[in-house]
Write a protein that binds this DNA or RNA. Structure first.
Lengths: 206, 206
DNA sequence: AGAAACATACCAACTGGTTGGTATGTAAAT
DNA sequence: ATTTACATACCAACCAGTTGGTATGTTTCT
């Protein structure tokens, strides 16, 4: 027999796929159960409501993605600026396959739910800004090393990077073509390079 | 009695509001009719289906917004770069009031419909990229004047600017706070300044 | 150790309200 | 006298959520 709680995980994985394909509102509980090969009884055993599943899906997304980013190779460069640029390169490299395979679940979901379902919105915000937070240290170190004392903060730049990525996804969906997203990420890389190259380096490295 | 076709316009205006508040999928035809103070008969007199209304709403949004942008004051500066920067300042200034009052209808709608309703997706794409197109000339002129011969194009930068704006909206919804969006637009302004200031000006103006 | 009591993990059938859409009507404009 | 611009009444399909179960552990009592 399958492990206990198998249905819950299958439902959450199905939710990630369906939200990326159709969005949260258009995804029905029946769709979800069919995709997960589970009955409706199982769904309501694990989730009190569709909204509660929305929150759980955002948390599941956070768990899945943070595992990917923790193990990703962009942490290895010694210079903090190089880690930031490697992150951008990594995000660029992730844009492979069909659109629902690389777009952001919580970015999609929050657009539909922010006003009607504050708990889902907050779970999405935690996912996005939590991920942005993982970039702050590298950016702050790069700012120090390059003597950047600007009117912007490490937190603000990390957030802006997420904005560019989210916007790139929206445009890719509209054009039904990844290449616009890639172009935007290239602009983001250029921006970060310009931000740090416009100032002299404190330590001559590389 | 009210003018003929009044119901159509009322329905389209209601659609713009409801899509911004709840998204396209969560907006029902009954919602729409109630908001527009119109009966369902009127709705299906003007639109064959909800999807067709989606397409019409995107086109209506294009018409409404292009009228605003045409009359906006950012076209007056003589230097093309200043017009581009004035556009960014104008977009920044538009971020007033509650979130559904400044976010983008087609950016929201396309995220939910891109895979299921290609005609809506295409109408949204036409709106976004059509608007981006209105910026290309100014950017191209600025590139010429500042001797920028880069590995990016006027079209690409115009598109990137829309990506930043769309992403800013997503993040504002997630955080339920405009300020993240403003911060991102400030980063966009800084990027454009850096792009053109890193090259010498051909003509000393301003 | 064995039985009783309880909890967990599901499943299939059902329900009441909602949804997009239709069928039919009517008053006004052309 | 048509066509246009709506309104009213209605429907079949669909939807989130419920009900009442079964099968399989796990814990507790004796």
């Amino acid at each position: 027999m399958a492990k206990p709680k198998a249905a819950r995980v299958k439902l959450l994985d199905a939710a990630l796929a369906l939200i990326r394909e159709r969005g949260f509102s258009a995804m029905t509980v029946d769709d979800l159960c069919a995709r997960a090969s589970v009955t409706k009884g199982a769904f309501f055993h694990y989730f009190k409501s569709k909204n509660e599943l929305g929150v759980a899906a955002a948390e599941h997304w956070s768990a899945v993605t943070s595992a990917i980013f923790e193990r990703a190779p962009y942490h290895t460069p010694k210079a903090p600026l190089d880690r930031v640029l490697a992150y951008i390169a990594f995000r660029r490299a992730l844009l492979r396959g069909a659109i629902p395979e690389f777009t952001c679940v919580v970015g999609t979901m929050v657009q539909e739910t922010y006003a009607q379902h504050p708990d889902i919105r907050d779970a999405c915000a935690a996912s996005i800004f939590g991920h942005a937070g993982t970039l702050e240290d590298d950016i702050a170190q790069a700012m120090k090393q390059h003597d950047v004392s600007a009117d912007w903060s490490a937190e603000g730049l990390a957030t802006h990077m997420q904005a560019v990525l989210q916007g790139a996804f929206v445009l890719a969906k509209a054009k039904n073509d990844v290449s616009v997203a890639i172009e935007s990420i290239d602009h983001l890389r250029r921006y970060v390079e310009l931000l740090f190259r416009s100032r002299p380096k404190r330590i001559a490295r590389r």
